[in-house]
Design a protein around this nucleic acid. Structure first.
Lengths: 273, 273
DNA sequence: AGTCAGGTTTCGTTATGCGGAACTTTTCGT
DNA sequence: ACGAAAAGTTCCGCATAACGAAACCTGACT
């Protein structure tokens, strides 16, 4: 079926609130005033539904109507919200800075990862300036069993935890090097635990070598965030990767320090003595 | 007043969606990770309710949980939303007019900036008509420690926040004038805080002098909008820049006025017949 | 003074939000 | 190592808000 409509963006979400946030994203992209009708055409949503959403946003000061009462613009409260979001996001800022510094140092793309559910989530990433590079987005996800950070996360778990997590997802083969046998994987994980670092040697993408360590803060429990260097094997061999380990570990320590710092500050609202 | 409770913020709103946005505002103010429990204490809302809200925000990528699954932080989607909101702001038009007026007045390129992560983001820029000019794009980013606006943003932060942003990363030198020593920088920031304006004296690009002030919002609180004049040192010395200060401050006030102006218009929803 | 293109209201239906209570997991003190 | 306290999570009956087709306004242009 070939649609003859010109919808550019679709409002999606499982709940009304999520749909409203999606609408905000559509609005955020606009550099001009917009009308109800323009949103109807752009998103394909029913008019009364959008009307109600805009009413809510206007009622709470997030949007503001022009004098003609048909053109909407961003309200001061929304602006303030956006400003505060960026202004106070110092944790991300600091992490990103560390990451950038590491990329400068080793000359290859690096990223910060976390375990999210049964997958590894790319929290942030800084690309190398080299022309040849793997382009991967922050926010994307990768299976645990074929990523360097994933193996580190697994290595930290109790056998029971690990088995439960791996039981959910079959060990899918992505390349010839992917470890698909549970015993092999357990053995690799043992090694990883002893070494304190992990490789991903073309186990997820052919031609991509990756080395990772954890940003573990010792006293604050197990805030396990991973940090990794990724590069084409043409530029990064295992040996070369090992040479980068000290720099990588230094970055990991820096990130651990940021995180434990940010975790402690929770009582600024507490009453005066 | 002797309140025995420690609630700082109330989540209010007639509809669930509005309450969710109010929650986002609470979250936007946080410069550290937070937990479900901390929000319960801060807002006084029932735990399951907040839990459900956080679930929705996490599910749509607006928030991200740390690996320990109890600390929440801002997600990449939320950051992107905030950046787009500021970049494409409809008062962009009004601000742009102020900027243009300022450029007319002082005869040099000017720009409006905001802090985003650990960098200064150019929201808007108007070029001088002079032939010799530095060409910089709106949307581009510059390190905080070597930009005039950046120093102003740093000057209004708490020491802890500032340390988080700067402490972990060596201050990269871009020119001979770049402040790469932390003590020097702290001293400079002290000065900036007292003066209310900041210079960038060839600290980022050789030959470029820059003077900036903040567009303070009247009802107090921190500001995330800066405005600056940039010119080649051949045309703009520190002395000449100081002569432009009144005009710059006037422009900053005008921009602050635009923001708070919109704030008054919030009650024409219930006036039907 | 009619037509038309937006914007707004209505209303029965359905989905979502709500939050006390119970349950599970983690953390902490001994 | 163990049990208690605290934090996180799930349950579920009730209440409320969202939904969107259709009908209804309202101004603008002819």
């Amino acid at each position: 079926m070939t649609s003859h409509k010109t919808e550019t963006t679709r409002i999606e979400g499982d709940t009304p609130a999520q749909r409203l946030l999606a609408l905000l994203e559509v609005i955020a992209d606009k550099d001009h005033f917009f009308t109800l009708q323009s949103l109807v055409e752009e998103t394909g949503m029913p008019k009364p539904t959008l009307h109600r959403m805009l009413q809510q946003l206007e009622g709470s000061g997030m949007l503001q109507r022009e004098a003609d009462s048909r053109h909407y613009g961003k309200g001061s409260r929304l602006r303030r919200l956006a400003e505060n979001l960026l202004l106070n996001d110092t944790v991300h800022g600091a992490r990103h800075a560390v990451l950038r510094q590491l990329v400068d140092e080793v000359g290859e793309s690096c990223n910060i990862t976390a375990l999210s559910g049964s997958e590894v989530l790319y929290l942030d990433r800084v690309e190398t300036s080299e022309a040849l590079r793997f382009y991967l987005h922050p926010g994307s996800r990768v299976p645990v069993h074929c990523s360097a950070s994933g193996k580190l996360f697994l290595a930290q778990m109790s056998p029971a935890q690990r088995r439960r997590l791996l039981g959910e997802v079959p060990l899918k083969a992505f390349t010839k090097n992917t470890l698909t046998d549970m015993d092999q994987l357990e053995q690799e994980i043992d090694e990883v635990r002893q070494q304190g670092y992990a490789f991903d040697d073309e186990e997820f993408l052919s031609g991509l070598l990756c080395i990772a360590v954890l940003a573990n803060n010792p006293q604050g429990g197990k805030s396990n965030i991973g940090i990794a260097i990724q590069a084409p094997i043409m530029r990064l061999t295992r040996d070369k990767a090992l040479e980068c380990l000290p720099a990588l570990q230094r970055a990991a320590d820096a990130i651990a320090a940021i995180d434990s710092d940010a975790m402690l500050t929770q009582h600024h609202t507490a009453s005066s003595v």
